[in-house]
């Protein structure tokens, strides 16, 4: 009787929430893996098993390596600045100045805006002839790149938008983490005569390291999944210079309906993410202090 009730309880509290998780997460992951060994094209009802052809095709295609390179470039150059700017902003906010809440809200506000809407605004700001950025650069007689229409600068434009949107998010987590560092550690350093930079190095960076790890992983997942800004601003162009793995996946699956090829790519993306996350956890033992 008690046992039966226990089972029922579990079914209720675990089973119900697990249904959506199972239907739209675990199960599709498996199906995706299965589809990657087929040549299904979504329209026709039948398909053949093609073994690892999809994988070999992907791993030998230049487009894949191009997209991989773009993904890595994009990830590194969004994660590193997001984290540095986030920490820097949190440090600025730490000093207990008046109007702190106001500044914090301003700095965080980009995060709540829809990426689609803001990408449209940014694509106007990046406009080569009349865009805001180039007009401002013009005042200082700086070079005015073509931004979105030049394959050398398009990715940088996407990166700028992404960092702009996410830095406030990182700031929020760092601000909280900084507020939990005991003040007497700073006082010990004051008594010993540590400089600002030494305090950052010996106190701040080690003590916020768990948050840094958290943010690096979250941002890496975000970066790998970046889509909206690319879709709005460049559609992967010019000349494929902003086509990331995920964008390539989208094009294969929902433009070319090459489901086998797309799911094979999805599996590769999952593997890359998994390996990345694991290696970050592993490496974190060296630099994260709990």
């Amino acid at each position: 009787m008690g046992r039966l009730r226990g089972t029922f309880k579990l079914l209720f509290f675990v089973g119900i929430p697990l249904i959506p998780l199972f239907v739209f997460w675990f199960f599709p992951m498996l199906v995706s893996l299965w589809l990657s060994f087929t040549n299904w094209d979504y329209i026709s009802p039948s398909f053949d098993y093609v073994g690892i052809d999809n994988y070999t095709n992907t791993l030998t295609s230049e487009t894949f390596y191009e997209a991989l390179k773009n993904t890595i470039f994009f990830s590194v150059w969004t994660i590193v600045p997001t984290i540095i700017i986030g920490l820097f902003l949190a440090l600025l906010l730490k000093e207990g100045l008046k109007g702190l809440t106001f500044f914090r809200s301003i700095l965080f506000s980009p995060w709540i805006t829809p990426m689609v809407a803001m990408s449209i605004v940014w694509s106007w700001i990046f406009q080569a002839d009349v865009g805001l950025i180039n007009q401002i650069l013009g005042w200082f007689h700086l070079p005015q790149p073509q931004w979105l229409t030049d394959s050398d600068t398009a990715m940088w434009a996407i990166i700028i938008v992404t960092v702009w949107k996410n830095a406030g998010w990182a700031m929020l987590f760092y601000a909280d983490s900084l507020s939990k560092i005991p003040n007497d550690l700073y006082e010990v350093s004051d008594i010993e005569g540590a400089s600002w930079l030494q305090k950052i190095k010996t106190i701040v960076i080690p003590l916020v390291s768990p948050i840094t790890l958290f943010l690096v992983i979250i941002s890496a997942i975000d970066a790998i999944q970046a889509y909206d800004q690319i879709q709005v601003m460049t559609q992967g162009g010019p000349a494929g210079s902003t086509r990331t793995l995920l964008y390539l996946y989208y094009q294969m699956a929902f433009e070319q309906f090459n489901m086998g090829q797309a799911t094979a790519l999805a599996t590769i993306i999952v593997l890359i993410t998994g390996v990345l996350a694991l290696s970050m956890f592993y490496a974190s033992k060296k630099w994260v202090h709990y």
Binding site: P182, D184, L185, E187, V188, I191, I203, P206, L207, S209
Partner: peptide
């Protein structure tokens, strides 16, 4: 030229 000892030890955890 002082050295100070704090109530909460103020040790660097890392």
């Amino acid at each position: 030229d002082i050295a100070m000892v704090f109530q909460n030890y103020a040790l660097f955890p890392h």
